[in-house]
Design a protein around this nucleic acid. Structure first.
Lengths: 210, 210
DNA sequence: CATTACCAAGCAAGCGCTTGGTTTGTAAAC
DNA sequence: GTTTACAAACCAAGCGCTTGCTTGGTAATG
């Protein structure tokens, strides 16, 4: 299995100013916001909670972001940007479509349950809290991400390796993988992300190519 | 495929006073609440929204329920009760474990995308809005529901028809099936729930028994 | 004629956000 | 190397509004 080091990818995006440095004030705020939004939900999280989490007054938040919703949007936008890059790298590192699928599953599980997990959960489950214009903006970025998956699944379908509709397979996988955030807990000697990846692929019916 | 008529099951539960009659004031309120909670989320839905949906003053709500959270809890509890009964009937109507699996998938898709869909979505996605005591209460009911699934999946595993861990298979299915609520839209000539069931089972690797 | 269902009014608390002013970091000017 | 200038970062206070919920009373029901 191809191992992808995330650090240089993150660093490149920071340099391009497409995501905030986690060491900066803005980056730290976004990280705390993701954690709070995931744990309590966007609506239950107050600007006072957010401010307290980074040790400033609630009013001072609005020096960095115009509105509370802008914080949510920023969490989502930066998360998609980072994860699109990570998924692209994962797919590029694999050869066959089947290996690419494994790499994508593994990478998405990593995104959901690893460092960016809080933000990913927000992206998936706080959709309704976005205003319509922001929603459209985020959706545009999400499409790029989804196309990565679809190109791999389409290739598998062309080869006859999967028989179900690629769109539907992707949607089922989206649900199944993102749901892991609610139950998967890595533990010493327990199920690892690689193990989880194996289980997912053991579940999926992949026909051998003739 | 075994077809299960939902009406008598619902009627029996109403008679036992385990779920509210949708025709009663309480039942109508719970239905509207489910719709609003799904569309806007629990937090974004105000008691004034709820009251307006059933045509009463906001204060009058508290004649029927002690708190707003009680409404959420009631939606969840009654939904589980109904759906546990529906799933039980679906499983009982099928013979082989494999057919039972199909029946459960079909029934859960029906629950999620059919009449009780709004309430099911609330059950899955508004978990965080419940207080800890209510959460425990709902969890207890959920366990009965989940055991229905697990007994079927365990049997399939014993027969060697699935190789992945039944617990994990169930969790993946939970995610995949409940996620359909975000994208599945039945349409004339489009994908039916039966078609969707077929797609799900086409995706899952089921080994033939020797 | 009591019980259930509701209304009209409003309270206390918490919400997102604004305002006016102070501190801090930084870099050129002298 | 101290001074000056200025913007970025932050604080203290609080405003206007919405929230869940209460209260005291009235209408319907059986």
């Amino acid at each position: 299995m191809a191992f992808v080091n995330q650090t240089p990818i993150l660093q490149a995006l920071i340099n391009e100013q497409r995501v905030s440095d986690p060491a900066s004030a803005r980056g730290r705020l976004l990280q705390e916001a993701a954690r709070l939004f995931r744990d309590k939900g966007y609506e239950r999280t107050t600007v006072r909670d957010l401010a307290a989490a980074v040790g400033i007054q609630s009013g001072s938040l609005f020096h960095h972001f115009k509105t509370k919703e802008d914080i949510l949007k920023a969490v989502m936008v930066e998360t998609i940007r980072l994860n699109t890059a990570l998924m692209q790298a994962a797919a590029d590192g694999a050869d066959s479509p089947r290996e690419k699928l494994r790499a994508l599953v593994r990478a998405e599980l990593e995104s959901i349950n690893g460092q960016t997990g809080e933000a990913m959960a927000v992206l998936v489950y706080e959709w309704r809290s976005l205003s319509e214009p922001s929603r459209a903006e985020v959706l545009e970025l999400r499409e790029i991400y989804e196309n990565l998956w679809l190109s791999v699944l389409n290739e598998l379908a062309r080869n006859g390796e999967i028989t179900a509709d690629p769109f539907i397979v992707r949607r089922m996988l989206t649900g199944a993988l993102s749901w892991t955030v609610t139950w998967y807990r890595p533990a010493r000697g327990g199920l690892t992300l690689d193990g989880l990846t194996d289980q997912v692929l053991a579940m999926i019916r992949l026909h051998s190519v003739v």
